[in-house]
Nucleic acid binder design. Structure first.
Lengths: 210, 210
DNA sequence: TTTCGACTGGACTGTCAAGTCCAGTTCCGG
DNA sequence: CCGGAACTGGACTTGACAGTCCAGTCGAAA
């Protein structure tokens, strides 16, 4: 947990296809375990078993567990962005936003609340414990907000939102509602809080529709 | 982490004043550490040091670490309820809600985002890992919601909210916004997301004012 | 003042985790 | 086909942590 001393930057580029595949296998297995159990509750041995690799492979591709967790954050950020993009790039109207809301609720119901948001749960666990992880997660949320902001900006430009609507601020509030809703859903084992939070957020935007 | 076998229920009542004081000292020290570092990152040795107690004292008052964490959740629930009560019992109008909002933001700014909500961070960490902890936390949120609901119900009854406003649902949405805002504030190290989330929630309620 | 149970100190155990090391194998360019 | 780098297996070290145990001390009630 305390490296940083070595002069060379580590985290070597994987030059061969086999190496890249092994590295990817490790990160994917780690992401799955971390999503279900959290970062500190996931041991390297768990990851070794799930990815069919050995200690030396882990340490060949990652300087330490922290570095591996950073790679997990990056993978989850990409995944979340992918899922969000699939539902958000059609968001150019209130109806589109409601479709997005329904998709989020459906996903949550399928998971029965367990796990929550891959970024949100990592953010809660790591933000105060690793500055590099915190920065990475903040960046992930920023990308997400940007994506949402684009849709809201398009709505404003096409006259669907009043000119005084602030897409960036709206996007932040919407993501906050989603995260809070997911947290309560996870705790109460019910999707209802998520539905209420997202409906509130959409109502807030609807109030600004032009 | 796996007891439950012993027939006797354990968790003995502390009959003497000295015992009660020791027990309270342990739980308070544990709560402080857990708030700052999370449950799994807080070791019993840390708690022993912070509370000036020994292993045998910990195990005299608590069956295992899980039981101690449950006591921590209960203490934090009481504390949060106390803080919330101090700001919420005057909430019988939109102006009162806005004062509450300002108080939450001020608290968050003072902590510079670190820690988040004592219940929220525990909920995120423990909900999927301990069913008893999850239930306790859900109960805490329920109490909180009830408290907020009371104020909103009073507003509705006094005609400050439209009759169709649903205090219970509004309360849940407000708490979700607060939790999500706190999470983003913790990650971005800025109180702005919290402000935006709470403003959205209050705007949502304002829209229902009669 | 005796006695018993509440309470305390701290050594000890077993387990598990991160991280190290090195001997070996595989792969690829020349 | 050969030399070196990329890659892999797994034993080993070190330390931390939860939980156990027992020999005590303290305090209040009889």
């Amino acid at each position: 947990m305390r490296r940083q001393k070595k002069a060379q930057p580590r985290e070597p580029r994987p030059p061969t296809a086999r190496g890249a595949a092994t590295r990817a296998r490790i990160v994917e297995a780690a992401a799955g375990l971390v999503y279900r159990r959290g970062a500190s509750a996931t041991s390297l041995e768990d990851i070794m078993e799930a990815s069919a690799t050995s200690k030396s492979q882990l340490y060949h591709y990652f300087a330490d567990k922290d570095a591996l967790m950073r790679a997990v954050i990056e993978l989850q950020t990409r995944r979340v962005m992918g899922v969000q993009a699939a539902h958000l790039d059609t968001v150019d109207s209130l109806a589109g936003l409601r479709r997005w809301r329904d998709a989020m609720v459906t996903i949550n119901k399928a998971a029965r609340g367990v796990g929550g948001c891959p970024l949100g749960s990592l953010a809660s666990e790591l933000s105060d414990r690793s500055e590099s992880a915190r920065a990475l997660l903040a960046h992930g949320f920023e990308l997400w907000e940007l994506q949402l902001r684009r849709g809201l900006g398009a709505m404003r430009d096409s006259g669907k939102l009043k000119p005084e609507a602030n897409p960036a601020e709206l996007a932040t509030a919407v993501i906050a509602a989603l995260q809070g809703g997911l947290l309560l859903a996870q705790t109460t084992r019910s999707s209802r809080p998520l539905e209420l939070a997202l409906d509130m957020a959409i109502g807030h935007i609807a109030r600004l529709s032009g």
